[in-house]
Amino acid sequence: MNVVFIVAGLMAIAGVLGVILAKQPVYQVISTVFSFLGLAALYLSLQSEFLAVIQLIVYGGAIMILFLFVIALLSARKDPVEKDVGQLTRPKLLGYSVGGALLVMLAIVGLFGHEGRLDWAQVPADFGQVKAFGYQLLTTNVFPFEVLAFILMVAVIGVMILVGRHRA
């Protein structure tokens, strides 16, 4: 299991780095999928099997396919805009420094936070499996579930309104 965590964590980090550094949109999508894979493995290591599957299907499948469709649709093969500095003065420098500061801060929290000292709880053998998860989702948490359905419907309608009709 040690190996799984290390490999999966490195995969996730490498995917994010790829998104930051890659020049072509397609490469970015691929490295994102890479990162999602790593995360799914991490979920597995946390005994969340259902969530790992959902991660692969929804993120790695549906959402990334959506990205690819958009890229294909717009033929935005190359990320074109990074050549000039843009409207911000020193955007990269500022972005890296602020992001780096955030990284340092959060890493300190993650490594030395009190909450992180928590020990893993004893859980039954079927923890995070489809049946147990589904039972929880559809009994205790059925209201958020219904709200989710509503949100998705709103999103669908919103997208149709935004791009469904061709406006000059």
């Binding site: 843009g86 409207q87 911000l88 955007p91 500022l94 972005g95 602020v98 992001g99 500061a101 955030l102 801060m105 959060l106 300190i108 929290v109």
Partner: peptide, 22 residues
Amino acid sequence: GLVRSYALTVFAGVVLVVAYYV
């Protein structure tokens, strides 16, 4: 009006808040 500038401000604020807690 630059989204990234706004994002920068937000992230800087987050850094400060976290720094306070740290």
